[in-house]
Design a protein around this nucleic acid. Structure first.
Lengths: 98, 98
DNA sequence: TGCACATATGAAATAATATTCATATGTTTG
DNA sequence: CAAACATATGAATATTATTTCATATGTGCA
């Protein structure tokens, strides 16, 4: 069910999140982490065919915003999707006929 | 139910929409149009306390992207929310505890 | 310890977006 | 028609985000 109002206070928060995931590379990362549970930076780079440094910047950014979390495992750092709710949003959008 | 995969083709589309609504002013506009069915540019300006020209730019932008539609009524131009699905997305986001 | 690998970081360059301001366009009404 | 109102538009500017590149940091291993 869809609630009628959007509380002004929440608007900024929502905009914040939407803006964060509304980017091809970041959405790509989220897409991968939606299926794989956890992935190293390198794996993400390879699969998306995007430069290491750039991926790293985006990962850091999303981690900072609470969307991802990370843990070290040996030489690698594994990233995980923390804010699962983004999946619901993306899924919903995917079903829309735009 | 949440589908597992995000088809690559759709990613760009989704990013496109998310990016569009992921902005305070635009989200504000959508918030208003979620309750009011249709509003004139001036009403929107007043309620959001944002300058006419700026609102107009954003309205044009969102109309162009298929999120809003407009019709003239006398001196005014009334805007309506066309892509209702954005409400579902926003609603979903609003319920997340970020 | 030193080398190779994995990731992060920061500054500079570039690109994309948003905002402002002045003005144009279209509409109603006296 | 002219004046007043509502909205749109476009160029200039400001702001923010993204990308790139060079390099730093941290880890495991010979």
């Amino acid at each position: 069910m869809i609630s009628t109002g959007i509380e002004t206070e929440k608007i900024e928060q929502v905009a914040f999140i939407l803006k964060t995931i509304g980017h091809p590379v970041r959405l790509g990362i989220i897409g991968l982490l939606a299926k794989e549970v956890e992935l190293s930076v390198n794996e993400i780079c390879q699969r998306l065919d995007v430069e290491q440094s750039l991926i790293s910047h985006h990962l850091t950014n999303m981690k900072l915003k609470g969307i991802l979390s990370s843990k070290r495992e040996g030489k690698n750092i594994l990233y995980t999707l923390k804010l699962k709710e983004v999946l619901t949003v993306i899924d919903c959008m995917s079903k829309c006929n735009l």
